[in-house]
């Protein structure tokens, strides 16, 4: 794997000769494993009630709210959906509003999540397996957006 082609380094504009490139190469394994984590969390074999398209759509929403439209477009492009696409559907009559309320709170206001938020998901029909899968997705995007943000800062890119 060429680590410069991994999502975090390419979206952060770390390229050959960039001042951060040599530093990044000291942690090659971390960038390779980060890419494996993205591939797994966004496109798992056992995707459950969250299709690959829905995961990409949610990832794009979280990235945008974290101020990273480049990452948003990366996620959407990976799933073949566009910014103006209607959100992918949930199966089995699961409630969209319940899902999106939880995703926004866990991603952006983590400190305020309580046991009641988990109960709401359970009472809406989400299984414990669904909930863990959802939290892994939300958590991974939180990680990836911050790594990209930090790398841009190191490179002197402050937009």
């Amino acid at each position: 794997m060429n680590i410069l082609e991994t999502t975090v380094l390419s979206v952060a504009s770390v390229s050959v000769g960039n001042q951060v490139e040599a530093v990044a190469r000291t942690r090659t394994q971390v960038f390779e494993m980060t890419q494996m984590a993205e591939d797994t969390v966004l496109r798992p074999e056992d995707f459950g009630v969250f299709s690959h398209e829905l995961r990409a759509w949610l990832a794009g929403r979280i990235a945008e709210q974290a101020g990273d439209s480049n990452l948003k477009f990366h996620y959407l492009k990976g799933a073949g959906i566009t910014e103006n696409s209607h959100h992918p559907e949930l199966p089995n009559g699961l409630n969209w509003d319940t899902l999106i309320t939880f995703v926004d709170k866990a991603a952006n206001s983590t400190r305020n999540v309580t046991a009641d938020d988990i109960v709401n998901l359970q009472q809406s029909g989400f299984t414990d397996k669904d909930i863990v899968k959802l939290c892994q997705l939300i958590g991974f995007i939180a990680y990836q957006t911050r790594v990209v943000s930090g790398l841009r800062m190191m490179s002197g890119i402050f937009s």
């Binding site: 939180a142 790594v147 930090g150």
Partner: peptide, 27 residues
């Protein structure tokens, strides 16, 4: 050093992930 700054970015970001598991899924 920049190597240390990179590790700080990685460890801090990792806990953005860990917290969204530990704090959200349990008490």
């Amino acid at each position: 050093t920049d190597n240390e700054i990179l590790d700080l970015i990685l460890s801090t970001s990792l806990f953005g992930w860990a917290n969204r598991l530990m704090h959200v899924l349990g008490d």
